[in-house]
């Protein structure tokens, strides 16, 4: 009987032991959107360095993490949800709920650690509730999380409508703490937390059964069910995780601004979705990486930085450029997926 030797049309060839080192690097199609984002990021950064004084300083890059820590954490949670083919509109509202609650409780003299655990639990609980409604009652994710959005922001406004200052010593200490990475390059703890969230999420997605189940459900939920995967449990877990990440984002927000405000995080859910899409996470589910989401957040962050350096570009152009980039990436993704299908 003859052996069947098949090579995927687009993938790399099976390794030939004769000359393993001389393999020409051909990217797998699944990395193309992410590589394109990376290329774009490099181009943007280089043009920034060329055009503006001091743009090349390491602090510019390091500050990207500091300034976008909240978005990054939220987008990481969103990545899990989108990978299963869902969507979570409630994250911005969960941030406002968390900041308001944190500030109020701290003002009331609650121990910081208790407050931290409590708000993180509450965010997760809200997420789990949404996941359960989506899975058990077959309410569409869009509508279920929209209701969650109203609920979370409603709770925030109910607690307090105005901005509440945080005077807690622990919060202030964390807020004012600086970490020196290299000579003259400092960053804040929130940036480290955000980076840690990215790394943990990447590890979970790549190396745990839960992570792989997320991809499987996004790829084909019916098949996943037939293959005996815990579809319901995974789906609820994913929304719980997104709720947790949003709450964590809220905590970071409250640390950064040492205040809580019910209008905080308004519209952040769409920024997070856009970051995922720019980073190559397909909204249909099953395809994308946390690393891509990181790049997506960096792209939007770098645009903001360039606008600050430029000085005369207003927020209007920021929005338009983000829109144009979004458009470019989606059309590119569309072309890539079409090619794969053929």
């Amino acid at each position: 009987m003859t052996t069947i030797d098949v090579t995927p049309e687009t993938g790399k060839k099976p390794e030939s032991p004769a000359n393993p080192r001389r393999r020409v690097y051909r990217p797998n199609t699944k990395y193309i959107p992410i590589l394109a984002t990376l290329a774009l990021l490099v181009i943007m950064y280089t043009s920034g360095v060329v055009n503006y004084e001091n743009f090349g300083q390491p602090s510019v890059l390091v500050n990207l993490f500091r300034d976008n820590a909240v978005l990054l954490v939220v987008a990481v949670g969103m990545t899990f949800v989108i990978l299963t083919g869902g969507i979570d509109l409630s994250v911005g509202a969960v941030i406002s709920m968390t900041t308001t609650l944190t500030a109020t409780l701290l003002q009331g003299g609650w121990p910081p650690l208790v407050v931290l655990v409590l708000v993180l639990l509450l965010g997760s609980l809200l997420g789990a509730g949404q996941g359960a409604v989506i899975h058990y009652f077959k309410v569409e994710p869009f509508i279920a999380t929209l209701a969650g959005l109203f609920l979370a922001r409603g709770i925030a406004l109910f607690i307090n409508q105005s901005s509440i200052p945080i005077r807690d010593e622990t919060w202030k200490a964390i807020s004012e703490y600086r970490i020196e990475i290299a000579d003259g390059v400092v960053t804040k703890p929130i940036a480290i937390v955000a980076l840690a969230a990215v790394l943990i999420a990447a590890a979970v997605l790549a190396w745990t059964r839960f992570g792989r189940n997320v991809y499987a459900i996004g790829g084909n939920a019916d098949s996943a069910l037939l293959m005996g995967l815990p579809v319901g449990r995974t789906r609820i877990a994913v929304y719980t995780l997104s709720g947790f990440c949003a709450a964590l984002g809220g905590v970071l927000f409250s640390i950064n601004s040492t205040s809580g405000w019910a209008l905080q995080g308004n519209g952040l859910e769409l920024d997070a979705i856009a970051a995922c899409v720019i980073g190559g996470v397909l909204l249909t589910g099953g395809s994308g990486y946390v690393f891509g989401t990181l790049l997506g957040v960096m792209v939007t962050g770098l645009i903001q930085t360039i606008i600050i350096f430029q000085g005369d570009l207003n927020s209007a152009w920021t929005r338009i450029i983000v829109g144009v980039l979004l458009f470019a990436f989606i059309v590119m993704q569309r072309l890539v997926t079409r090619k794969v299908k053929q």
């Binding site: 899409v277 983000v322 059309v331």
Partner: peptide, 23 residues
């Protein structure tokens, strides 16, 4: 025509449109 999912297709104008209005 291009075949983009409606939610994303209209997200583009949602993000950029407000910028256009500001402009």
């Amino acid at each position: 025509v291009i075949g983009i999912q409606p939610i994303i297709a209209t997200l583009i104008l949602m993000v950029a449109g407000r910028g256009i209005a500001q402009l």
